[in-house]
Design a protein around this nucleic acid. Structure first.
Lengths: 335, 335
DNA sequence: CTGTTAGCGCGTTCAC
DNA sequence: GTGAACGCGCTAACAG
């Protein structure tokens, strides 16, 4: 590694003090035009690249936002991250990206090492924060946004930007009931370590129960996300109940996979079996027939989260602690 | 912000010197078991979180890898990033995520501010690096991996992990020719600011020309990625040439959208029109019929890139400067 | 408007 | 195996 040029080198070259160089970079307005140009020239000529590590240590600000999500592979999260990143970039902040992993220990470890990097703010998705982790985050003294489910607002670390998975799933199930379907199955993720999945499943059950329909456990499937898994789930459910009328998939990818399976098998949708999804993924409007689903604006989550964190960093105190971004049942052709 | 506990506080509590605390954290083996435990206890009790900013300044290592991609919204990149992140995490490195944006100026700005954060390594996707940007990166003195297209290897900044978009597109076009199709269209991204798109289009043209078929510009479409755009492209191409035999889409999302359009219109695939994709996205094997496509292992790119950077950081000198991860034509049902 | 100086919190020498 | 001192490169406060 070639030795880096330091601020002092630039200062000497421009024949000014080191403080002036710092000001040219961080508060150009407070320097006379003449010296500013001289310093700029020296910076250019020497190829100086400021050392933000040193700057951060001195200023106690890193301009880094820590982002912790279960996985960036899921478009649901990458959309959120992208929108968040756009907002932050405009204000000069960068994203430090981390995965919460599967276990609470992993999540705790990530949070610890991330806090060690002294981010100015932190976004964390999911109930990944166990009590000790939450305590750690609380003590960090930085703006924190949790996302994943509105129920986090009951005991928030700091701020929450989310929607209610329970209400959304309940609304879709009610929509299906309203269409006259009675024998409705549900496909979701493993609920054991995933609160969102649990909330959705609970919403489905609640709607059925309110309608006086008994929840049949054999019509509730938990599996990993994927087109193939959606197809398999549909086959299995129709085996279990040949009279099945509708399937509510807690993710469009499953639903799309199931639709493709219907096409292969020659099952007509929604007449033979109705299908509903969740997310309003891009593909949802393009399937044949187009998919009835629940729309959640992931980019809104990212945008609002960024705005809250930025607002807090700017010292604003009129900010909400909880933002419900809501959802929308989108009726299309499959249910 | 509550005042943070510093190393000196822990040292005093454990009645040791500050150096010993540092050693307990960074080189536990060089400390006696007794004092180590005493220090550990003090760390626990005080809730000490090390300040890696200060540590980085002193050690000149940040354990941060800068990752610059056009967008994380595209699964192609998120897969790469995810695989890379997994590798780096195991070694204690974290990812600083940035977007190169559309213009060279934007890319230059991102690179500059990222280098200012003194990452230990950098991954950059795309020909986003204009000559001045490349020079800047070269002077940084850190391991750098470029990705996006194998042609980057002709004039690499440091290392390159990629495949040949040209060869891959040519191979698929040759496959289509081998199946007997002659009137073949191509759909890709805007080639103006996207070298990969250009390489793919060139590969398509080269295959046609070698087969003695004249390239018809009206059968080359450039548009943004999306299911809907794929459907639209197919309609437009069939209008332009009712005798069209095959369409090679430079992305599975377009191809899947086109297949759905065929379903809506009642066009049989591949008899009325053959369709080929690119990427071997998860959906490719699930469409009806399953999609013939080009497989590129994005996770391999991420993994190999991480290995190269890590290897270099460990001082290994037997590392390749160029890794061709290759591709594979996957014949399925659509062509 | 500008130069100087004192830390920021830690890693890394050294002596011991 | 351990403690003390120095310096990493910069920001911020102050004096001029």
């Amino acid at each position: 590694m070639s030795d880096q040029i330091r601020m002092i080198d630039v200062a000497r070259r421009a024949k000014v003090g080191i403080g002036t160089v710092s000001r040219v970079i961080n508060a150009p307005g407070s320097v006379s035009e003449a010296t500013r140009l001289r310093v700029m020239k020296a910076i250019e000529e020497s190829g100086y690249v400021p050392n933000l590590i040193a700057g951060s240590l001195a200023s106690k600000r890193t301009n880094v936002i820590a982002v912790i999500v279960p996985t960036i592979g899921n478009p649901v999260f990458s959309e959120t991250i992208e929108a968040m990143g756009d907002q932050f970039r405009e204000e000069g902040f960068h994203l430090l990206l981390g995965r919460s992993g599967e276990s609470e220990q992993e999540a705790h470890a990530v949070v610890t090492t991330f806090l060690a990097r002294r981010p100015d703010g932190l976004f964390i998705h999911g109930g990944s924060a166990s009590p000790p982790t939450a305590a750690l985050l609380g003590r960090a003294g930085i703006p924190i946004v949790e996302s994943g489910d509105l129920s986090l607002a009951e005991n928030p670390i700091d701020m929450v930007v989310a929607y209610s998975n329970f209400a959304a799933a309940k609304a879709m199930t009610e929509h299906l009931l309203g269409q006259g379907y009675r024998r409705i199955a549900f496909v979701g993720r493993e609920t054991r370590y995933n609160d969102r999945a649990l909330e959705r499943q609970r919403g489905y059950c609640a709607a059925l129960e309110e309608a006086g329909i008994k929840v049949r456990p054999e019509l509730i499937l938990q599996c990993t996300l994927g087109f193939r898994q959606g197809a398999e789930a549909l086959r299995l459910l129709r085996e279990r109940d040949p009279g099945l009328e509708a399937v509510f998939f807690g993710g469009d990818v499953w639903a799309a996979g199931a639709l493709l399976e219907c096409q292969r098998q020659g099952w007509t949708v929604p007449d033979e079996v109705a299908i509903a999804g969740f997310d309003d993924h891009e593909i949802a409007s393009q399937t044949v027939p187009p998919l009835t689903t629940v729309r959640v604006l992931r980019s809104d989550i990212g945008r609002r989260a960024a705005q809250l964190i930025l607002g807090r960093l700017k010292g604003r105190s009129d900010l909400p602690r909880v933002v419900d971004v809501g959802f929308q049942v989108v009726k299309r052709g499959t249910a």
